[in-house]
Nucleic acid binder design. Structure first.
Length: 287
DNA sequence: CTCGATCCCTGGACGC
DNA sequence: TGCGTCCAGGGATCGA
């Protein structure tokens, strides 16, 4: 489950190993995870990988085409790569001349060649980078929605790059229940949550990410941050802060791990619709 | 419009 | 040992 720290780790590795290299040819196998395989096959060969960046959970391979030094690049182009759950993008040295190979058993990933306006528009769909977002912007993005905070953290149009692991870890650290509505969070809680999220993401990047399924970086090495998980995957185990058993509930279709003592449940949330069904119907007719 | 549930896909864990 | 079942989850899509 590559999230921001894992993708950052892979992107940094690729920046070292393949930036500056020219792509001679492209060979496609299964293409159902690609936006437009024909375009990739047609446009990518002959380009040079200028650099490799992370954008949310995407890697952006910035491409440039051979041209005279005097003439400017017509438009920016990039290969967008999302690792999904099981994706891996890594150089292989066994074959000639050398390969940058993408593998993804489950094909939850995504690959797309985008340029110019199309590329710009695609990137605009995503929210703020969690490592760069200011306290004010973070607060505004969260408190403007009544959705549950866990769902908001996972929403890539709110913040780009946070997934299930780091959402649970930061909520545990900040002592906020995952089912709490974003709109109900106090500014103080929002400040704590942003601090926790950034601290955890930085630490995880330092440790080259979490390897909980089979994540390995571009050098084939696993990360170490899974040793620091305090909530994620710890159902029934003791909370590192208070000793109570960690619980698991489903929010936004995902497992959410939390401490029922350190992260107190919101007062009357989650089942509102059910308990006010009759009144609710009468009220809606007024509108 | 906003929010939540469902589905896609396959390998690994688990039970019998 | 082998087989069936369940679960993991990012994001698109659909429906309330």
């Amino acid at each position: 489950m590559p999230e921001l720290p894992e993708v950052e780790t892979v992107a940094r590795g690729l920046q070292i190993s393949v930036a500056g290299r020219r792509i001679v040819s492209v060979t496609l196998r299964k293409t159902d995870f690609m936006d437009d395989p024909d375009t990739i096959e047609r446009e990518v060969p002959g380009t040079q990988i200028a650099r490799v960046e992370r954008f949310g959970k995407f890697m952006l391979l910035r491409l440039v085409r051979d041209r005279a030094a005097s003439e400017p690049e017509a438009s920016s182009k990039a290969l967008l790569v999302h690792l999904g759950m099981t994706g891996n993008l890594a150089p292989h040295f066994a074959e000639q001349p050398r390969e940058l190979r993408y593998t993804d058993a489950r094909r939850f990933g995504r690959m797309a060649y985008l340029a110019g306006e199309t590329l710009a528009a695609e990137l605009l769909r995503f929210g703020a980078d969690p490592l760069e977002v200011t306290a004010e912007e973070f607060a505004k993005r969260i408190e403007s929605s009544r959705a549950r905070i866990k769902a908001l953290l996972l929403d890539q149009t709110v913040l780009r790059g946070v997934g299930n692991i780091y959402a649970d870890e930061s909520l545990w650290s900040a002592g906020i229940h995952p089912a709490k509505s974003g709109a109900k969070l106090k500014r103080k809680e929002l400040a704590r949550l942003r601090q926790a999220l950034q601290k955890i993401l930085r630490k995880a990047i330092q440790m080259r990410g979490s390897s909980i399924s089979d994540f390995v970086d571009a050098e084939g090495q696993p990360g170490d941050y899974q040793q620091h998980h305090r909530a994620y995957g710890r159902e029934g185990k003791k909370c590192f802060r208070c000793g109570r058993a960690i619980k698991r509930i489903i929010i936004a279709g995902r497992s959410s791990y939390f401490c029922p003592a350190c992260q107190r449940a919101p007062h009357r949330e989650g089942r509102i619709r059910k308990s006010t069904k009759r009144k609710g119907r009468a009220r809606t007719s007024k509108r």
